[in-house]
Design a protein around this nucleic acid. Structure first.
Lengths: 178, 178
DNA sequence: CTTTATATAGAACGATCATTATACTCTCTA
DNA sequence: TAGAGAGTATAATGATCGTTCTATATAAAG
């Protein structure tokens, strides 16, 4: 991976996340990257392609981040996953779920690569939760996903550390209480 | 309120919600409204002003919708509020929370009227929950808000009726169990 | 009958958008 | 030393953006 390409992906991720995909033009991205426009088009076929690669990259980072929190006990696993998500929210900015935002901005076209990528990512997250433990029901996975999404959204208007604490409390209450 | 102005607000709300605020141009709005561009500018000072009025309108509609579900018992109240939110999700499209989306698209400028409107709306929702009953703690309100936001977000990738059912289940589990 | 308000169509504004073409400068390598 | 590969700068493309101007039409109210 070229050094320039990686810098483009890094800058684009930040700008897209903080401002939205339609709101940010390529000019702003290359300007803040100190990289020529032709270099961008040498690495990416189009703006849409850049967006897709930014999202692929973010998906990898998020899942890699979560994997560090997993253990093999169901209770600890769900709780650790919640802890991982809470820490992720606190570490990164608080502008919501980048994947849902991408789907929202391109959702009018269900065939758009961005939308398909987001759908696949969200499905894979539910599978990840289900596959952690055979005692986790479909209902469990759905409810836990609701908690994660809720924490992400709430972090847009409330201190992520506080939200993260509530996420852990609720995970305990919903899944681990007698 | 002029008939034309109302139609503009209705069409703009739908288009903005389904596509995003930056993705939709005024041309598309006036085209689908069958209303001249100068008529739009006769009723709204700018695109931003139109967006603000669309959000004000939606806030009124949402709160009016919720108010029909409220009762005076704490248990029933929180549960009814959840029921109201679930029905709202099922009735309207599934493109997330329009207010958070607006904040996300204009969030780079904290002084932007859209951002302030959204912040005020979200604060007012927490207050609405707290003021329903003096036994509702700040923590309760935060956790319940997390459930509402989670249900809204999850409805972007999962059938809102199923999500609404889970929202009710979790509201019971978190707030009403022994 | 005249005024006033409201809506219309259509062109024009300057700015910005994503994308492409052209031409130049490096640096490594064969 | 010749050539390839990668990056740069700049301009141009055609489209669309929000906004404004002009001029006209309609209809109610004085």
């Amino acid at each position: 991976m070229s050094e320039k390409k990686e810098k483009l992906l890094r800058v684009a991720e930040r700008l897209f996340y903080q401002n939205g995909f339609h709101a940010i033009g390529l000019k702003r991205i290359i300007s803040e990257s100190d990289i020529a426009i032709m270099t961008l088009y040498n690495h990416f076929a189009s703006k849409d392609d850049l967006i897709v690669e930014v999202l692929k990259r973010r998906e990898q980072q998020y899942k890699k981040y979560l994997r560090r929190y997993l253990s093999d006990d169901k209770r600890l696993t769900l709780l650790n996953l919640a802890k991982g998500h809470a820490d992720w929210l606190a570490e990164h900015q608080q502008c919501g779920c980048m994947f849902l935002r991408a789907k929202e901005e391109f959702g009018s076209d269900p065939d758009h690569p961005v939308v398909q990528l987001v759908n696949n990512h969200k499905e894979s997250m539910v599978r990840l939760i289900q596959n952690m433990d055979e005692t986790i029901t479909d209902e469990d996975a759905l409810q836990f996903t609701l908690l994660l999404e809720g924490a992400t959204a709430l972090s847009e208007t409330t201190d992520p550390k506080v939200v993260g604490q509530q996420l852990l409390t609720m995970t305990n209450r919903v899944f681990l209480d007698s």
